[in-house]
């Protein structure tokens, strides 16, 4: 007798009497109300391990390099941030595109709520990265926290805005990884500004000194607007 033959026999042998109260119990079963912060916290569990590893890798490198005063740490951080943004965009799109198991929650919450919670969780992760790295760099090299923060945030937000917009486009929907291309382009741009010649870098830093915070606010507003548009069209994108 083969294993294949055993299966049906075992299933037959384990036949149990039908439960009598199943339907009435399930009908009256009311899952506990889940608060908004709980939904966001649950979304942390669905963020993929590579995303955590990338965030952890950046923070570890930046904090360690800041402690040992490696001059290029700020450049490294600004070059990496577009990829962190692209990963966030892709992670959001993963939910909308594939209807993964976590979207079973959509039976209780709307798909928009789930995607919004996912975006919030990813936003919190990025904020933690910024809150750990920017003060570490600013303190180690005696730089202005506002300029350092702006320098880190601008490439991140630029990639987020472009990535979210592009991923909604027909081409973005077909390819699915266009935000990584954008991240690479922003990264190269930032690298060129940092390394092409000292005059360009000085001009950029001078601009950040006067307009950095305003630019961050503009990009932040655009990011929120793009996220709102993504959430608004999420059913069409899924």
């Amino acid at each position: 007798m083969k294993n294949n033959d055993l299966g049906p026999l075992i299933r037959e042998a384990f036949s149990a009497p039908e439960p009598e109260m199943k339907q009435s119990f399930l009908k009256n079963l009311k899952p506990r109300e889940v608060s908004t912060p709980e939904v966001v916290l649950q979304q942390f569990a669905y963020i993929r391990i590579p995303v955590w590893l990338f965030a952890g890798f950046i923070m570890l490198i930046v904090v360690t390099a800041s402690l040992f005063r490696f001059e290029n740490v700020e450049n490294f951080m600004t070059v990496c941030m577009p990829f962190a943004a692209a990963i966030s965009v892709l992670e959001t799109r993963r939910s909308a595109r594939f209807g993964m198991s976590e979207l079973e929650m959509a039976t209780r919450f709307s798909l928009r709520t789930v995607v919004l919670a996912r975006m919030t969780a990813l936003g919190i992760l990025a904020a933690v990265e910024l809150l750990v790295c920017a003060p570490a760099i600013a303190a180690s090299f005696g730089r202005s926290l506002l300029i350092t923060g702006s320098r880190i945030l601008i490439p991140y937000l630029l990639t987020m805005v472009s990535g979210l917009a592009v991923e909604r486009s027909p081409l973005g929907r077909r390819t699915g990884y266009l935000s990584l291309v954008i991240a690479a382009a922003v990264s190269v741009l930032v690298f060129l500004v940092d390394n092409l010649d000292s005059r360009t870098l000085l001009l950029y830093l001078n601009m950040l000194k006067h307009w950095g915070v305003a630019l961050v606010f503009v990009l932040l507003s655009l990011t929120v607007f793009e996220q709102w548009k993504t959430i608004h069209h999420v059913e069409a994108l899924a």
């Binding site: 439960p19 009598e20 889940v34 709980e38 976590e102 079973e104 209780r108």
Partner: peptide, 24 residues
């Protein structure tokens, strides 16, 4: 049967009281 059903229902109630919803 009756005890098994009681246990099944108690299992669901305890689980949902703690985790709120059932997922994969």
């Amino acid at each position: 049967r009756a005890t098994a059903e009681d246990i099944t229902q108690e299992t669901f109630l305890r689980f949902l009281a703690k985790y709120g919803t059932l997922r994969e």
